[in-house]
Design a protein around this nucleic acid. Sequence first.
DNA 1: CTCGTACATTCCTTGACAGGAATATAACTG
DNA 2: CAGTTATATTCCTGTCAAGGAATGTACGAG
Lengths: 112, 112
Amino acid sequence: MSDAALWAALADAHRRAIVALLLAGPRTVGEIAEECGLSQPSASKHLKVLREAGLVRVRQQAQRRVHTLDPAPMAALDAWLAPYRKLWGESLDALGRRLDEQPDTTEPTPKD
Amino acid sequence: MSDAALWAALADAHRRAIVALLLAGPRTVGEIAEECGLSQPSASKHLKVLREAGLVRVRQQAQRRVHTLDPAPMAALDAWLAPYRKLWGESLDALGRRLDEQPDTTEPTPKD
DNA sequence: CTCGTACATTCCTTGACAGGAATATAACTG
DNA sequence: CAGTTATATTCCTGTCAAGGAATGTACGAG
């Protein structure tokens, strides 16, 4: 269930910012730290989390570590999202009615 | 930035389980607690988080509170995911090469 | 009005995580 | 080799979220 690592990694706004930044191209740790307004150690730690979640790859270049986005794990998110995507395609009102087939009492009557 | 609330809500595995459960239809708090192996207070609290993230709606029926999934906020996730989706559409190998202007060492993935 | 059911909320404790400072490590430079 | 750059790691601290136990609250039945 490395799924958990993925969600945890993306749950942090700074890490989402890093990932978004890497969308524009590879960056060294220092660049990432600066562009995201993070301290170097903080950037380093966030990148570690992203690496362990498989979202980022690193390539060493002299003393620098160039980080590259690996969007592959996000396919899992996409897959997770799939069943829900169908739902917001249908009207939400219709959704409520359609799902309301429970052995419970009926009569929707939302106060909305 | 209620985006944060959404990510935070879905970052928890129990809450994802609840959401997945509600995919099958509305449930009372008690049912959710039981089917997810949660205590009643725990379920109640998780549902509160989901409600505040807009992922779940509640309809009161006698003493019971029937919770219904509202997938609408997930569209934000979908939108967030969009730029990345393109990337894994291209071959990941190609991506790697495209971003990789200078072939070098690849990290051997410390552990998993 | 009293009781029972279904939930919500509070209080408390614990564990995970983030950020900063300082330090360690690795790689290039001369 | 010493020094510098770029990054990783450790230690410490504060914060915040989760879980459990106990209690509060709303609703309906009788």
